[in-house]
Write a protein that binds this DNA or RNA. Structure first.
Lengths: 111, 111
DNA sequence: ATTGTCTATCGTCGATCAACGATATGCGTC
DNA sequence: GACGCATATCGTTGATCGACGATAGACAAT
């Protein structure tokens, strides 16, 4: 539709080079984005943020998923560093790792 | 280590309820996060952002991936709405879909 | 119309995800 | 020490990803 003929216009200008250092940058962001790349995990994060403090197997009740599945998602979030688990007797309290959250926001904002 | 005994303290307070409407919210963010959940895609997005305008098969050269693989990643980014492709004669110029980028930033910032 | 170029799609393969039930582990209580 | 509860891990299954080469499709030029 928007056919442009002859002139190459502004398209595909090679005046800028991709800086290789942001390969690491890309991996950092990808890792964090990956943690949020599932609705269940986003909901867990939001749930944790909505409460002032941590939470435990209550997450399981809020979700419509099996306990083992939720635990798996929590593990992924933990590995990404977005979430922290603190053992409190027989149960485990999770909370957001503020620093990593800040990093995520910074990375996205800096896109 | 950080053993806390008797008192349940602030942990697992049930005073707040998860609002169901943010199920949709979660899916929106998850979809966008998913698009960025791969280093190659992050790099593509950053590449597109670094240039004032769109780009074409140059992306393939910047990446160390096969053309078909890059095309696949571009398709994913397009489906997420993060990227737009405009046919320019024999080639295709890609550019960031600013609106979706803004939405992503807003969603993440609003976490 | 044929050719060459650029991009998208197809088909395949190995790896990983997401989900679950079943089981193991850790901890407090009796 | 045995039991009960909360959580993590294991093992399985089906679905999807990520990568590639090969091929098809669109377009400009000859």
């Amino acid at each position: 539709m928007v056919r442009t003929k002859a002139v190459a216009k502004k398209c595909c200008n090679t005046d800028e080079k991709l800086s290789l250092p942001d390969v690491a940058w890309a991996e950092d962001l990808a890792k964090l984005a990956w943690a949020l790349a599932h609705p269940a995990r986003v909901r867990i994060v939001r749930l944790l943020l909505s409460r002032t403090s941590c939470i435990c197997g209550e997450i399981v009740e809020e979700m419509t998923l099996a306990q083992s599945t939720v635990s798996q998602h929590l593990k992924i979030l933990k590995e990404a560093g977005l979430v922290q688990g603190e053992i409190d007797g027989p149960r485990v309290c999770y909370c957001i790792h503020e620093q990593t959250m800040a990093k995520l926001k910074k990375l996205v904002a800096g896109l």
